[in-house]
Amino acid sequence: MSRRIGRILLRAVITLVMVAILNFGLFRVIPGDPASLLLGGARTSVTDEQIEAQRQNWGLDRPLFPDQALDYLSATLQGDLGYSFKFRGRHVADLILERLPATIVLVGLAQFIAILCGVMLGVYAGWRRGGAVDHAATGVSLALYSTPSFWLGMLLVVIFSTALGWLPGYGAYSPGANVGSLDLALDYLRHLALPVTAVALGLIGQYVVVARAAMSDVVTEDYMVTARAKGLTGGQMLMRHAFRNAMLPVVTLITLNLGYVVAGAITVEAVFAWPGIGGLTVEALNARDYPVLQGIFLLLGVSIVMANLIADLAYGLLDPRVRQ
């Protein structure tokens, strides 16, 4: 049991180290003095003394490896990700932390909705394979699976915001909303509705496809015949025997699709000017704000490794066969 967990942890650590190496290496490859980059790039006016102070402060006069690499590591571990170019002199870590809650709300809610709806629909479609629900769900899911979420977002804006005027399609708050009131909360939810729908729709397609495939494999298993022979009702067979087995591949495949989650969230935020990491990414890309970009990469890398770790551990809880 602990050997498996050890192996999973080791793999996570190796991946994290590679993320760090890439982050460190990419950062050094950019032309220009890293010290001035750290201070805010060539576009800001900094004095030579400041640069020199930074150089020594960051140990840039020392060899790249191992000294600088170790410095980078210790600074990163302390949450020091350098300074933004665009938002002069601001700590990258602060910028990211400021934007993170909005993204967590958006992605968390969308994931929750997508997993709930997608897995339920997929499981049902696989259970009743060939039925009307199956055909409809599979068709729509494959289409959603092939559609970029941000485009869904743009369509939602055209329909529900521009044409119908039901919901706002821009930002997180209406200008002039009173701070601290119930109206504000409602206003926030109304702004959240379309972006969450866009991200969730993009993900539902995948969950349906995956859960359906998993379930259609499970229903042909011999232990399902045993369950039927035992006189279980369809519902009992589904809940007691099929569901958990079908969840095994779903857990693995969900982590495989994390790229879609990240891409979906970042681009959808760009569509709706949602004040989260996605918006920050676009600003950083446009301003070539590399420190911020590097910080975002670190955040995404660590989150993805963590998500995989959780999925691997969860798999062990679901499937006794891998536990030894």
Binding site: E221, D222, Y223, V225, T226, A227, R228, A229, K230, G231, T233, H241, R244, N245, L318, D319, P320, R321
Partner: peptide, 28 residues
């Protein structure tokens, strides 16, 4: 008739299948 057979199953007739590895649910 699947549903009508249900009360009969296992109470009256039970089955020992070939290859119990697959006939038993691996997660329980």
């Amino acid at each position: 008739h699947d549903a009508a057979m249900r009360p009969h199953r296992w109470s009256e007739t039970s089955v020992v299948f070939q290859g119990a590895m697959n006939a038993l649910n691996p997660v329980h």
